[in-house]
Amino acid sequence: MIEAVGLGKIYEGCRAAALSDFDLQCRAGEVVGLLGPNGAGKTTALRILSTAVAPTFGRARVGGHDIRTDARAVRRSVGFLSGDTGLYGRLTAEETLRFFARLFGIRGHQLSSRMAEIAALLDLSPFLRTRCDRLSSGQRQRVSIARTIVHDPPILILDEATAGLDVLSSRTIISFIKRCRDRGRAVLFSTHILSEAERLCDRIVLLHQGKPVFGGTTSALKTQTGAQTLEDAFLSLIAGAES
């Protein structure tokens, strides 16, 4: 579903690469976590794969489409959600979802049934006709998720989607990721919360200073570092990379 080889990015006006030599594979029904300290290149990697920014070098295919030559097809295959993604405050939840659904070519009866399906899935009905700026943060999060999956994408890319959320809102996202995996979706997500990664991820990729320093399962990481917990393993690997 997602296949990246040697992806790298140097932003305008910067000398150092924000990301380099990034390889990744994420299959259907698999959850892959991107871990790393701030500035490690997680967001850059996810934004390249969702076509929000272009890579400076390397190549990637998402949902079978090349991110450079078939960006629109990539975007149709991907649902992208980040922690600081906003909603149109002056539109209702329903208007927001209808707008994005129409952009993905969903209309008529298909649109109505999709709206009903998403509303039931995320329990949106009580506030579907409320303006987004009047929703609670949890409700907003659910609308954001609904926006992400309105076109029923086979791939989900989530960038720090639980950052800054309370326990209940975070749990909504975690349940959502699990449901997606169960339904055969490929999920690539970044997080700072190692317990989340340990609970959810089939595999993790650890980034440090723009480069991947580990790729594999959490147990493999613990074995490699000899640490008891993922946090210790993470710190050990980062310390090793820095030395």
Binding site: A52, R75, G86, L103
Partner: peptide, 14 residues
């Protein structure tokens, strides 16, 4: 500023 531009950039809109 509101973080909604990003949702358009990753939509099918060029």
């Amino acid at each position: 500023e509101r973080g909604t531009l990003e949702t358009l950039v990753v939509s099918p809109l060029e």
